[in-house]
Design a binder for these strands. Sequence first.
RNA 1: GGGCGUUUAGCUCAGCUGGGAGAGCGCUACCCUUACAAGGUAGAUGUCGGGGGUUCGAUCCCCUCAACGCCCACCA
Length: 890
Amino acid sequence: MTNHEELPKTYDPNGVEDKWYKAWDEGKYFKPRPSKNGKKPYSILMPPPNVTGKLHMGHALNHTLIDVLIRFKRMQGHETVWIPGQDHAGIATQAKVEQKIFQEGGKTKHDLGREEFLKEVWNWKEEYGGHILEQFKKLGDSCDWDYFTFTMDETPNKAVKKFFCMMFEEELIYQSDYIINWDPVLQSAISDAEVDHKEVDGNFYNLHYRVKDSNQVLEIATTRPETLYGDSAIAVNPNDDRFEHLIGKLAIVPICNREIPIIADMHVDMEVGTGCLKVTPGHDFNDYEIGKRNNLEIINILNKDGTLNENAQAVQGLTAKEARKKTVQLLKECEQFVKMEPHKHQVGHSQRSHAIVEPMVSKQWFINTDKMASDSVTAVEKDEMKFFPKGWENTYYSYQKNPRPWCISRQLWWGHQIPVYYCDSEACGHTWASEETPESCPKCTSSFTQDPDVLDTWFSSGLFPLNTLGWPDEEKMKELQFDKFYPSSVLVTAFDIIFFWVARMMMTSQKITNKVPFQDTYIHAIVRDKDGVKMSKSLGNVLDPLDLIKESGCDSMRFTLAVSSGYNRNINLDPSKIEGYRNFVNKIWNAFRFMYPHLENANDKGFEVSDLHHHEKWILSELNEVIKDVTAAIEIYRFDDACNKIYQFVYEKFCSWFIELSKGILNSENEAMKIQRANVLKYCFKEIVKLLHPVTPFITEELWSHLKNEDDELLIIQEYPVYKTEHVFTSDQENMEKFMEVITAIRNLRNTVQIKPKEEIEVRFYTDDQSLAKYFFQSRGFIKELARVNSGKIKDKSVERPAKSIMKATSHTEVFLPLEGVVDLQVFIGKLQKDKEKTQKEFSKIENKLKNPKFMKNAPDDVVAKVKAEAKEFEDKLSSITNSLENFQA
RNA sequence: GGGCGUUUAGCUCAGCUGGGAGAGCGCUACCCUUACAAGGUAGAUGUCGGGGGUUCGAUCCCCUCAACGCCCACCA
């Protein structure tokens, strides 16, 4: 006889988790396996973490949800693969390595040169890049590591070049002088999406511009007086009577005394400021547009580091901030300064360096996304790709319906270098894009130079769905089963990346394959602290997944994250919640501890449905419903519903009732029943363990190792439970509900008069439902056991009730506890009265409904029938209570 | 300025296409009952943000107000 003393009282995840991860990984269980019964392949891409990344709660959530889906589908028999990867993260990584070499040797990247510097970056990647991947294994990620793709690997590099050249040929990629966001710290262009607008305290400065050949002056308001050196015009609204006579004249820029035209442009709002606008096409997005419309000169007044250049001689070499101060001073000196007023306004900051972004005109590479964006919208409109929750469509549309040219060149070294080559011969001047590194200029055989810039990281991330499956290398595509796994089944990610990543993958993948890259997109919540504040180092409210795993076990953390995930936007994660679900995990462990010694009674034959005891039918029927509900919930990404259903079933049904009801049988001498019950317990528990495995993989695999037959495979590839019509036992469920109700009523009564738990009592039931009376009679043994009853009687309601007693009424049965001892009758009557009031209130509510002719006329028949049945129940209950009250008071 | 979202028990949140208000944690009382004190049994708690409307019937649909949060936007 196996003794449950062998199993510790509390579940200790320590050791168990690593043991099973190793077993799965080494046993190649994460690799795709041929599907069963023609089920469709199922694949998910891991959002590739930055190579500089560190594991945080966002990963824990994202990976838990993906892993739930993958494990669920794998068990269902789909051929399944979760494809991991990692992003080279151009700016972040370069910045990190630059910092490192500066700290260690005081050198800058320019001291090393491009080639040496890149070597340093690769070294850094080799040393630190793997950390986060090792951390992922602690989460239980069941991804196929053989599919691992780093975005700077050879295949992604080929993909980038191929796509670039394709777009270049179609002239959808082009080089242009255009106003872009310049990060003076990184000294690179950045895309619109990488700019955050923050409100800062600034000033409005009012200045005077003289009009040439006139003594008139124009007062102009600006927040950036230092840009006056780049002014190309003064613009007024063409309909503005105040300035109409000046249009076409010249104004003189203060300090540098240049002459600029006064022009009319509709963009100028007469109501705002002074109605006159200084136009600086080189350093303002609107002014750039005005400049283009009016053919104005573009004057660049900034150096790459953000200081003023020779075009702003008076303030040359100063930073923008210093230049602003100096310019104001100079304006005051020449008496062209009017006033300064405090003003809050939005200023663009670089997401990466946090520097103030300077709009600047510069030669950059762009993608025309007009067509691709509109195709990506159509695909969602036609449900080729579906958002869950659906509401996120709007966010997606808001980006994709107003596409702007995407600036893809970055003045960095770490990244995919732009595959464009320039002939060194001035006479030839050929410019071309090529997937292969050329030998010489194809036109004149001269030497050539490659464009020094690299591509925006998102350019390669956008190709992730393709290059992870080998594209464009045909052999690799075969090997990695491109045709089987593309498009992937679902993309699971957070909302903040819809534009950066989801939209770009949609555009590039559709462009290349004419198919959407994934069929669904599930947008999950953002993990915040328990007060709803975003976790950040500076606030000190960061929870580290590895700490949580250490404290409560990975399964508990996973369950908590999954049960918190549905169609919500935020998860306010309270550590006490994890503790609660850790207790649940422990509960399962102990349910097993209880069963363990009895398992050897179970035999391989299992059980016949026809032999089942009514409690067994009940639990199987309940389990069956749970299986149905859980499966349906996961299919639509309602992890919260799925987890709650299982939790509820395991805790409230299986543990609190079925196990309790089984104790008597298991300790009895009835061998046949013992075997049968052991079989059913084992069956149910195996199903529970399977149901839970996607969410809590470690403890379930551990339990499975004790439950499985010797030649059974690991749980990770066992078949997921399926709904069985032969396990539907509705009447057993209904009877059981009533049984539980009367047991609870007895316990409630015991409690109200403080009968000791060990003390056995007498009980009487009064019901007019003959079949229910019969059911209770058959269950008398269980009633005695669960409610500590030593004797009882079941009578119909015509029989007189015991005088000295307390009672509780249900809609079907009156439960009486005859009492010999002293009872404070008044207290009890008060309680009963309260119960009566409550019941009366509910009954009246329903009765009024039935009395309402409009309701009877308009409500659907099934609703009326339901309400009638309810009314009957309340009426019965009410009359039971009323009768008792009369008796007690008499 | 535009858009999205939130407002339900002390806290964190769920309530699907309208038909008797739920969960977890916390709280109260009684219990070391032979799986589990990370436990058991029983229990208390809500003008479902305010106001209006549609409907036989509204937490759910419509309008409006309020508070809070987020995203986007070049307003000098």
